[in-house]
Amino acid sequence: MSRKPLKVSGLIQSGRLVPQAGITASTAFDTPADAPAAEIGQDQPAEMAYNALPANTPAVVAPVNALGVEKLIDLDLLDDSPFQTRLKYDPERIDEISQSFLSAGQSTPITARQMPNGRYEIIKGQTRKKAAINIGWKQARVLVVSRTDREAELDVMVDNTGAPPTEYEEALMFRKAMSKEYATTQKAVAAMFLCSQAKVSNGLAMLNLPAEVLSLLDEEPGLFGAHAAKVINSLWETYPTHHDVILKAIQRLKEGADQGSIQVWVTQQINAASRPPRAQKHLIPSSSGAPRYLTQAKDRDIIVRISDRSIDAAMVHQRIDEMLRKMADEVVE
């Protein structure tokens, strides 16, 4: 295809197109306002209802049932969870959710717990919050629940296994679950996250990678998975003097190289460095440039090929012998 396609998103990303500020979005094609989400709380049983307190009075704290109450809450009152192990959010995914918010509205509320200072801490729905901010919403539907620190931390983790985190992020989660003694054995961790024990042990092994490699993963958690980590670990031990090559192999993943190629690439690089030089060939032409002889050295053998058919091979052989006899004497003397 001749030219690269032109995308609105691409133009904005490259800064060639800046949407003008101060233009109000047209409501011409909008759905006529349906029952706003704020009214949902009024249908709740009396003991769960929370509508006596408007969302934007943060100083007052009221008890909230563990099942939760749904409310409209200002986005700037929503804080990210300190227990979140997810390191990066996919901007494309956020955009997708933004688009669906615009077309279908917010179908699932964000889950958050109320903090003593009157603010809210997200348990599930950090991406949804980012998507809502992305399209300029000021408020979003939030299911406010009551959770202790421990419960909240567990909730955040379990949500993580629902939306696929990277294997590295999972491994961090496994370790945390064990260090905090939410689960003491690998078997218990596996049961907690609904995965196989092998996955847990592979994940934990991943965290034993050398510090240099782990720092690369911290930057980009999706760089490679547990299987590649195993390969890297064994290479690291096998070639203690070639750690730079292994790091380079990992860097290559950032440029789109395949995880499965690490082992082959590293061994090739190391072998290439230690391989003896190739057989040397010398072409000996006449003064006019016509090829006469070709000599080739391989280990302790030197082969002479006579390219020009008009030359008498016996004569050349004799002359070489003469030269060698002379050299033989030189060495003896």
Binding site: L6, V8, L11, I12, L17, P19, A25, S26, F29
Partner: peptide
């Protein structure tokens, strides 16, 4: 640049 903020979410990405 004026059209984009006026019709958010309604404009196809492909130009």
């Amino acid at each position: 640049s004026k059209l984009l903020p006026k019709f958010p979410g309604k404009i196809n990405d492909t130009i």
